[in-house]
């Protein structure tokens, strides 16, 4: 048997170069978006001042205070939440082998929303610091219900059953949320702010609190990359390749809950990032999950921070929340993606 020279066999050198270039470009996009996020806003601050504010802050300087107290937190939260949504979306799409799966479709956002509304209307919570925990718990509870409903019965949790269970949980949670909101207008007012989703005006302490959850979630995603490469071939093939499908699926579900719960708790539910990012990542980096997960993290963060910056520029002196910007830009982009049949199953 002839053996070809080593090096030609695995995805061509050009392809590998493209993958590295794509990842680097995503990283640069994130750096650029973050820089703009620190530099741009209602108050015009010179670039040099912004740099000083970050590197050599002066206590009484109002420009520095704006950068450090307002712009830096929302940038950090945008990065954290965006990358969490991006990676969570990539995990969900691959584990369920469903290219349109995202935290919204699986009812996780609806679960978080129900928990936050319950917190506001029943427990009278008003501080974002407490809402964080309700959002997180709501996400986890919704995931548990979806997993429980989907795996009931002998057929087990097939991708289709997971999607259907998610849709059912989303519908149920949303209707209860609406019921609570309609019966209490004051709650509606406070909830509206949370619901739109934006990294602005959030609590930076929440990031510190949720950091362990984020780190754990990203670690699970990193460890799952190779396993997912086998899992997307289908359960039978994955098992015969030695993958422990059940274990991997539970681990990924935990990762999704951690990332999605933390992301939603940080910035509110933001649609489309979890849906769009993995498609972009696959388009740029191909099908190897070790690459697409990394790209999803960078692209998700870049998207959310960019949307947040765009929201500041769209309607001065006011702002449009990042969640709205993402939806307004995201919906047409998604339509274009579908029309050009760029949709790819993982």
């Amino acid at each position: 048997m002839t053996t070809r020279p080593i090096g030609i066999a695995m995805p061509g050198a050009a392809f590998r170069f493209r993958r590295i270039a794509a990842l680097a470009a995503a990283g640069l996009a994130l750096v650029a978006a973050s820089a703009l996020s620190l530099a741009l806003g209602a108050r015009g601050i010179a670039a040099g001042e912004v740099l000083d504010a970050v590197l050599r802050p002066e206590a009484g300087n109002n420009d520095h205070i704006v950068v450090r107290e307002l712009r830096l937190p929302r940038t950090l939260i945008g990065i954290a939440a965006g990358s969490a949504f991006g990676v969570a979306g990539a995990l969900i799409q691959s584990v369920t082998r469903n290219p349109i799966a995202d935290p919204g479709l699986l009812g996780l956002n609806a679960g978080a929303a129900l928990a936050v509304v319950t917190a506001i209307s029943v427990f009278g919570t008003s501080s974002p610091g407490q809402q964080v925990w309700f959002a997180f718990a709501g996400t986890a509870a919704a995931a548990a219900v979806v997993a429980g409903v989907a795996s009931a019965g002998r057929a087990g949790a097939t991708p289709a059953r997971v999607a259907l269970a998610g849709a059912a949980v989303a519908a149920a949670a949303t209707s209860i949320t609406t019921l609570l909101l309609l019966s209490n207008l004051e709650t509606l007012d406070r909830f509206r702010f949370w619901q739109v989703g934006s990294p602005a005006g959030r609590d930076l302490d929440a990031l510190a609190v949720l950091l362990p959850a984020l780190i754990a979630g990203f670690t699970i995603a990193a460890a799952a990359g190779r396993m997912l490469n086998a899992m997307v071939l289908g359960d039978d093939l994955a098992r015969s390749l030695g993958a422990r499908v059940g274990v991997a699926r539970v681990a990924c579900a935990v990762g999704v809950v951690l990332l999605c719960g933390a992301g939603t708790a940080l910035s509110g539910p933001i649609a489309f990032i979890g849906l769009m990012t993995p498609h972009l990542a696959r388009r740029l980096c191909g099908t190897d999950h070790r690459w697409t997960l990394a790209a999803s993290a960078l692209l998700g963060a870049a998207l959310l921070v960019t949307a947040d910056v765009a929201g500041r520029l769209l309607a001065p002196p006011g702002e449009v929340e990042a969640g709205l910007v993402v939806a307004v830009i995201g919906a047409p982009v998604m339509v274009a993606v579908v029309r050009r049949s760029m949709v790819s199953a993982p």
């Binding site: 995805p11 490469n229 071939l233 039978d236 015969s240 390749l241 993958a243 191909g286 199953a345 993982p346």
Partner: peptide
Amino acid sequence: LLPQQPVAPDGITVAELVDRGRH
């Protein structure tokens, strides 16, 4: 094992798919 009608991920190249056998 080669199952009856396996499904390949979209956009995967032949070399990449064959490489998955090394899992």
